[in-house]
């Protein structure tokens, strides 16, 4: 198929316009966090750092940030452990129910977030009678973050050769020593990439969080949702939104540098569960 020059040009223009469509709203949030006008009239009449100052001073924002970081860190640690164990088990062993489990690990990201959210909410409050807290959020987040670690580790294990581990065993290293000195060093960057993805995923998750968080707790996304409709908080919401963009994109960017197969289309599927 030979496209004429004008057909190529038209396609190029369409692509450029779609990119404009993709990036403009995000840039608008960044600009509006400096917009002196409280109602974000466009074009901005003046720029100010006042909202950034107010966000830094706000105890609500600070507490929410600490909660978000804590939730993301703990869920990342849990998913690192569980995801690695699962990847090792599924790739190295054949056993009954192996296919079922490999389907199970994807289920939390295959079903819409609202289903995961209400299922866990129902489980905690109705069935178990546990009161919701940041811990219930951690349990929910770890359940769907596990798959990012799992994907990264299993992709790395596929490329690794088992020979080194056998050699290590032959040379007298025990099971744990082999893992510590032979397997783990080879997995390190995959774990870092998977961990960063899990962290980013948990840090800005909103749907499952609204269903599993306790009444008195806030994470940053929850704080945004609570303050969105309060006119005098709106400028500060913009600042928090910019923080969310930066804190979720930087780890992804790092993860992409660390591991080529981590941020591709497969990982997009993980992100898809947010909805």
């Amino acid at each position: 198929m030979r496209l004429s020059r004008s057909a190529k040009a038209i396609l190029g223009v369409v692509t450029a316009l779609v990119f404009l469509f993709i990036y403009t709203p995000l840039l608008l949030v960044v600009v509006n966090s400096f917009n002196a006008d409280r109602t974000f009239g466009w074009p901005p009449r003046g720029l100010t750092l006042e909202w950034w100052g107010r966000a830094l001073d706000s105890t609500g924002v600070r507490e929410a940030l600490v909660s978000s970081l804590w939730v993301a860190a703990v869920s990342t640690i849990i998913s690192l452990v569980l995801g690695t164990l699962l990847a090792l088990a599924l790739l190295r062993y054949q056993f009954f129910g192996r296919d079922v489990i490999s389907l199970l690990v994807i289920l939390p990201i295959a079903l819409p977030g609202i289903v995961t959210g209400i299922a866990l909410n129902n489980m905690f409050t109705t069935i178990l009678g546990v009161s919701l807290s940041l811990w219930t959020v951690v349990i929910a987040h770890a359940t769907f973050c596990m798959v990012t670690v799992f994907n990264n580790v299993i992709a790395r294990l596929r490329r690794m050769q088992g020979g080194l581990e056998e050699a290590s065993a032959d040379l007298g290293a025990g099971v744990f020593t082999t893992f510590r000195l032979v397997t783990f060093p080879q997995l390190r960057s995959a774990l870092l990439a998977g961990g960063l993805l899990a962290f980013a995923l948990s840090f800005d998750e909103i749907i499952v969080t609204t269903f599993t968080i306790g009444a008195g707790d806030t994470t940053l996304p929850i704080w945004i949702l609570q303050n969105l409709f309060r006119p005098n908080q709106a400028p500060v919401v913009n600042v928090v939104a910019v923080v969310l963009i930066v804190v979720s994109i930087v780890p992804i960017w790092l993860a992409q540098r660390l591991s080529e197969d981590s941020v591709g289309i497969g990982a997009a599927r993980v992100k898809a569960k947010e909805g």
């Binding site: 949030v29 909103i206 949702l225 939104a241 963009i245 979720s248 994109i249 992100k271 947010e274 909805g275």
Partner: peptide
């Protein structure tokens, strides 16, 4: 941008 927060 796919990785920017859905909420944002």
């Amino acid at each position: 941008p796919l990785w920017a927060s859905y909420l944002v």
